[in-house]
C-alpha cells in the first residue's frame, strides 16, 4: 500500500503532496523535509530505495522533479518504480509543459490512479477520460 506521494523539485520545494494515511501537520512537514533532504543527497549510483522509519521510500528523478513514494515494507520496489513511470507518462500526456499551476488537475489524475493507497487504474486513456470530459464542458 502507498502511504504518500510527493513531487519535489531540486531545491527541495514540495510541488504536490498527497497522503493516504492521516498525519499531523507538523509531523508531516518534518517528515517531508527529512525525506526530501535524504533523497536529494543521494547520488546516482545509489539505489532509489531507502528504508525510512518503518516504511520504504522509493523515488525516481525526472529532469528537475523528484517523485517520491512511501510504501509499506512489503511492497515490491520494482513495480512501484514502474508505477511512478506510468504516472509520469500520464502526466506528461495531459500536461504539455508546466504542471505547477494546475495543482487541482494533478490531484484529479492522481485520484484516478491511486485511491486509498491502492492502484486503481493504469490505462492512460481511462485515467484521463473524466478530466477531458471536464475540459470539454465549458466549450460545449
Amino acid at each position: 500500500m502507498l502511504k504518500f506521494l510527493l513531487l519535489v523539485n531540486k531545491q527541495g520545494h514540495t510541488r504536490v503532496s498527497q497522503y493516504y494515511e492521516h498525519m499531523e501537520l507538523e509531523e508531516r512537514t518534518n517528515m517531508e523535509a527529512e525525506i526530501t533532504r535524504k533523497c536529494l543527497a543521494r547520488s546516482d549510483d545509489q539505489c532509489p530505495f531507502m528504508e525510512f522509519k518503518n516504511f520504504k521510500v522509493i523515488y525516481r528523478r525526472y529532469a528537475s522533479l523528484l517523485f517520491i513514494v512511501g510504501v509499506d515494507s512489503d511492497e515490491n520496489e520494482l513495480s512501484i518504480l514502474e508505477f511512478i513511470h506510468n504516472l509520469v507518462e500520464t502526466l506528461d500526456r495531459y500536461f504539455s509543459s508546466v504542471i505547477m499551476f494546475n495543482l487541482d488537475k494533478v490531484h484529479m489524475i492522481l485520484d484516478e490512479m491511486i485511491m486509498n493507497g491502492q492502484i486503481v487504474e493504469t490505462n492512460k486513456n481511462r485515467i484521463l477520460a473524466p478530466i477531458s470530459v471536464l475540459d470539454e464542458k465549458p466549450t460545449s
Binding site: N76, S79, E82, F83, N86, I119, T122, N123, N125
Partner: peptide, 19 residues
C-alpha cells in the same frame, strides 16, 4: 495494447495476483 508496459501485459495486476 491497453495495458502494455514495455511488452508485458499489465504488470501491476500480475504483481497483485502473485501477492
Amino acid at each position: 495494447p491497453e495495458h502494455d508496459v514495455s511488452g508485458i501485459s499489465d504488470p501491476f495486476i500480475q504483481v497483485k495476483v502473485l501477492r
